[in-house]
Amino acid sequence: MLALSPRLLLPPVLLAIILFAFWRPDNVASETMALPAPVAMSDKRIAFSFDDAPRGKGAFLEPDERPRLLIEALKTAGIEQAVFFVNPGRITAYDNDAADIAAYAKAGHLLANHTAHHLKLSAVSARKFLADIDAAALWLKDKPNYRPWFRFPFLDEGQKDKAKRDAVRTGLKKRGLMNAYVTVDASDWYMEEQAIAAAGSGRTMDWNALRDLYVESYVQSADFSDDLARRTLGRAPVQMILLHETDLAAMFVDDLAAALKADGWAIVTADEAYRDSIANMEPDVDFADGTRTQMLAAERHVGKRWYQRNDQKVAKKLFAERVLRD
């Protein structure tokens, strides 16, 4: 190494340059050092939402046990803020559902509107549908952590009835409610139906296989929607995952979160998701039924819009092959 006299005082930057020019590690023969490549930051972001709270009895847990376990699982998963879309018409004086909903808010999660009675827009008038939204809003308006967001039950925005769709869109704007989009869906509600049917008929289910199917399906759906969004919008918006307040969520959401993180996803808050500009897009397509990404892709004539496991025939076959053991 170059010997420098202690009397020679050099500017620190120049001294660093000289030292770097003459220093070599003993075990490196080449004249140039290989510097590590910069690590690319992932732009894959996802938030969590749960529909149909409070939900009826599932296959495994008691109704009051589910919220407690789900809150614990969200904490374990590091999901600081999810949003629960509530159907207040299901709450009665004979259950603990109101307290369970309050527990979600107390744990830091958000509450939003899903109609009072989980109506399907294509099956009722726009007037009746908006009245049911108002009934839910009346119950929700003073609750802690309420957000003026609305999600269509069944993701049904009127299907092919554009007049009805537009009447409700106008009604939402007048009420100051945002259409709370989803982008990632793997039909957990149908997986739950299969589990309930199997339990009711005394079938044996493989718990680990059910967990793996649940987690795998949603990670695949997230990656599918990420690719679809990039092909449609030329960028990666914040994805919003659609889950339901089910036993499966309470049992497996922490495993799902861990798998998403391992796949390169950053979990963000629902507030951050709905600040993304995709939240204000209103696709004008011949159908209004499905995720925001699917409808935008249809509007822009982008192909390969449907995640395969949302086909109930495919989902039923997978459940039978992988979960049932007798």
Results as ranks from 00 to 15, higher is better:
M1H: 09
L4Y: 02
P12R: 08
P12M: 04
V13P: 04
L15C: 08
I18E: 09
A37N: 06
A37L: 15
A37M: 15
P38L: 13
S49W: 05
F50V: 04
G56S: 15
E62N: 05
E62T: 07
E65L: 02
L74P: 13
Q81I: 10
F84D: 03
N87Y: 05
P88I: 10
P88M: 07
R90P: 00
I91S: 08
T92K: 07
Y94C: 03
D95K: 00
N96S: 11
N96Y: 06
A99G: 12
A102Y: 09
A105S: 09
A105T: 07
G108V: 11
L110E: 11
L111H: 06
A112W: 01
T115L: 02
L121R: 01
L130V: 04
D132C: 00
I133Y: 04
L138N: 14
D142N: 10
P144Y: 02
Y146H: 09
P148D: 08
D156A: 11
E157G: 14
Q159N: 14
R175A: 09
R175I: 00
N179C: 03
Y181G: 01
S187D: 02
I196D: 00
A198Q: 06
M205H: 06
M205I: 08
N208W: 02
L210R: 02
R211W: 01
S217L: 00
Y218S: 07
D223Y: 12
D226P: 09
A229T: 06
G234A: 14
R235F: 02
A236L: 15
A236S: 15
M240A: 14
K261Y: 01
K261R: 09
A262C: 05
G264H: 10
W265H: 07
W265Q: 03
A270Q: 01
D276L: 04
V285H: 06
D286Y: 02
D289I: 12
D289M: 15
A298I: 08
N310E: 02
V314Y: 10
K316A: 14
F319P: 05
L324R: 03
